[in-house]
Simulated assay, not measured.
Amino acid sequence: MQSDPGYVAVHERKKSSPQNARLLERIAADAASAVIAAVAVAPAICTIDKSIVENASGKRRLVESIKHSMTELVTKPQKFFLSKTFGLVAMVYAGTYLVANTTDTFLSYKKGNEDITKVTAGTAKFAGTSSTNILLTLVKDRTFARMFGTGASKPIPLPTYALFCARDCLTILFSFNVPPALSKVLPDNIAGFSSLSTAQILAPAGCQFLSTPMHLLGLDLYNRGEKLSVKDRIQAIRANYFKSSLARIARIVPAFGIAGVLNSKCRYYMMENIERRMKNDRVALG
């Protein structure tokens, strides 16, 4: 009877049922890790993003804007955490890390890989995370530009959208795909960090020296229109490049450095617990 194909098929489904049953738990762990990471770093990112936009528009100087946001965070925390700006930032990074996490989960599930804690760095993750991050960041940046820019609210020009897309693709590449490769050439246990954790901080931070001009040009096109000369654009970017680069490093380290490490650690421990229970289920089923 055991040679009957129908019996074998049913038996195989029963053997794989623990993994099927745990898939929703794994997705829940992916989501929980993403939200924890996003909410933990959103206050810093929200403050810096707002200051960069206000500084570029001339509404407030960079340091003045940061002080204003920090004062509100301390004196009116409920207003700060319930604000649209905080919600938009948390949405961007929770969504981005959720897609990154679930991509790893579904790739592992599809291959039947026993190591469900594995982190990938392939094309699928880049395509998913970059498209998600670009879409959500454009929503956030459009709202920030309208809230904290100069003059009346106006449509975002297409060149600004294109520059923001290029900026975000570069950031995603350096945040999710470069760190695994970079970690192979870095020493382990730097100041208590693993080589991967160190790479997750260094790669996106270094990327900002390349992406900041795209960001500043996009904001300048929005704030001053598209009819200015190339010389005027270069002068505007040069005037704000260094401090904006440092500000963007200060925001990207929490966004894809600290949040990346926190997301990875949370997901690893949650998945490790789920994997242990999956093994117990397999043993129970024989």
Rank of each mutant, 00 (worst) to 15 (best):
A90M: 14
A181V: 14
I36N: 04
P180W: 06
S16Y: 11
K243Y: 12
N263M: 05
V139D: 00
L170S: 15
V92N: 07
D115P: 03
T103R: 04
A94W: 08
G151W: 09
L73H: 11
A205I: 07
P254T: 05
G286C: 07
A29S: 12
S131E: 04
M270V: 00
R267W: 02
A94N: 05
T85F: 03
S229I: 02
G225M: 06
P213G: 04
V261T: 05
T132M: 14
Y97K: 03
T103G: 01
T171I: 12
K140S: 10
L186G: 05
I116F: 09
D232F: 03
D232P: 00
D220W: 11
M214K: 02
P179G: 09
F86C: 04
L285M: 09
Y269K: 05
A199R: 06
T129M: 15
C207T: 05
P179D: 08
V253D: 01
D104M: 05
K111S: 13
P213S: 05
L262K: 05
L210Y: 06
I27H: 08
K227Y: 04
V92C: 14
L173I: 07
I258A: 12
M70S: 09
T117C: 10
S197D: 15
V139T: 09
V53E: 01
L186E: 04
G206K: 03
G87R: 07
P155S: 14
M271W: 02
